[in-house]
C-alpha cells in the first residue's frame, strides 16, 4: 500500500474527527451541564447546512453562507431552548427523548416544506475546488481548509472551556450543577449561552460538510448517532473526552473502511473477505465503544467524579 494513500486516509479521518468534535462538543456540554438528552442536536446540524446553502445561493459567497448559518442556527437554537427545552431540564431522560424526537420530526418536515424532499446543492468556493499538490502528494484543497478550520475552532473552544471564566462556570456546572448554583453561577443564562454555542458549532459543521456530503432531510440523524458514540467513548460532559473520542472515531472509521477490506484480502479467501471486510469496517466504531465501556463503564474521561 503506497504511503500517499495512507496519508490521504489519515487526513480524511482527521477531517471527519474534527467535524464530529464540533457536533459532539455542544452535545456533551448540554448533556453534562443540563443533564439533558437532546436528540434534536442533529436537526440543528441540518438547519445549519440548509441555511448555509440558502445564504450562499443568495449572496454568491460561501463565507457569507457560513456566517449566515452560524447566526441563523444559533438563533434557532436559542428559540428552541427558551420555548421548549427549558421546560424539560427537570424531567426524566425519557421525556426528553420523546420531546426531542418530536422536534426531529417537526424540523424535518419544516425543512421539507421550505426546500423540498430532494437534496440541495451547496458548492464549495471555486478557488478551493481543485487539489493541492505538495511534493507529488495531491490532496483536495477544500478538505485541507476544513481540517484547518476544524483545528482552529477546536483549539478556540478548548481554550474557552478550560481557560476562560465562562468556561469555568461551564465545567463547574458539568461536575455539580447544584453546587455551581449555590456558588452564584447563573445557570439559566449559562444554559442558553451553551445551547447557542452548541447550535453555532452544529452550523459550522453542517456548512463545512455540506459540499462534501449531501444536504438533505434526515442528514442529521445518522451523524447524531455518531456524535453520541463520540461523547459516550469520551465520557459525557467532558470536552477533552469529546475531542479524543471524536478523533478516535474519525480515524478508526475512515481507516477501517479504507484498509480493512485490503487487509482481509491478504488474510482470508476472497469470498470471505468480500463479505467480512466492509461489515467489520462498519462495526469498528461500535466495537470500540463497547470495548471502552467494558473496561471503563463511564467513558475515557468521566466529567463527574
Amino acid at each position: 500500500m503506497p504511503p500517499t494513500l495512507i496519508a490521504e486516509q489519515l487526513l480524511n479521518g482527521l477531517q471527519l474527527g474534527l467535524m464530529l468534535f464540533l457536533l459532539a462538543a455542544g452535545l456533551t456540554l448540554v448533556f453534562g451541564i443540563m443533564d439533558m438528552i437532546n436528540l434534536a442536536h442533529g436537526s440543528l446540524y441540518m438547519v445549519g447546512a440548509y441555511l448555509a446553502a440558502a445564504v450562499t445561493e443568495a449572496s454568491g459567497s460561501f463565507l457569507l453562507g457560513i456566517a449566515g448559518a452560524i447566526v441563523g442556527t444559533a438563533l434557532v437554537g436559542v428559540a428552541l431552548e427558551v420555548a421548549l427545552l427549558r421546560r424539560l431540564y427537570r424531567r426524566s431522560h425519557l421525556s426528553q427523548v420523546l420531546a426531542t424526537f418530536a422536534v426531529i420530526l417537526i424540523a424535518n418536515e419544516i425543512v421539507r416544506m421550505i426546500w423540498g424532499s430532494q437534496p440541495i446543492l451547496l458548492n464549495m468556493p471555486a478557488a478551493l475546488s481543485g487539489p493541492l499538490e505538495v511534493g507529488g502528494f495531491r490532496y483536495p484543497a477544500y478538505r485541507l481548509v476544513v481540517i484547518g478550520a476544524g483545528l482552529a475552532i477546536a483549539l478556540l473552544l478548548y481554550l474557552l472551556v478550560t481557560r476562560s471564566r465562562a468556561g469555568m462556570w461551564v465545567r463547574a456546572g458539568a461536575s455539580d450543577r447544584e453546587m455551581a448554583e449555590v456558588m452564584g453561577v447563573d445557570t439559566r443564562t449559562l444554559f442558553t449561552l451553551v445551547f447557542a454555542i452548541g447550535a453555532a458549532l452544529c452550523a459550522v459543521a453542517g456548512a463545512l460538510l455540506g459540499p462534501l456530503l449531501a444536504v438533505q432531510v434526515g442528514m442529521g440523524e445518522n451523524i447524531l448517532i455518531l456524535a453520541f458514540v463520540v461523547i459516550t467513548i469520551g465520557g459525557i460532559g467532558s470536552i477533552r473526552g469529546a475531542l479524543v473520542g471524536a478523533l478516535l472515531v474519525g480515524l478508526i472509521d475512515t481507516a477501517g473502511r479504507a484498509f480493512l477490506p485490503f487487509l482481509f484480502r491478504q488474510m482470508f479467501p476472497a469470498v470471505v473477505a468480500a463479505e467480512a471486510g466492509p461489515a467489520v469496517a462498519s462495526m469498528l466504531i461500535y466495537m470500540l465503544m463497547a470495548a471502552v465501556l467494558f473496561f471503563r463503564p463511564t467513558g475515557l474521561f468521566p466529567a463527574r467524579g
Binding site: 431522560h93 462495526m283 465503544m289 463497547a290
Partner: peptide
C-alpha cells in the same frame, strides 16, 4: 456492566453490530 446513559449506548452498539 454499565448504567444509565452508558447502558443506552452500549445496547445500541451491540444492535448496530
Amino acid at each position: 456492566r454499565t448504567r444509565g446513559v452508558y447502558f443506552i449506548m452500549i445496547t445500541l452498539a451491540f444492535a448496530q453490530m
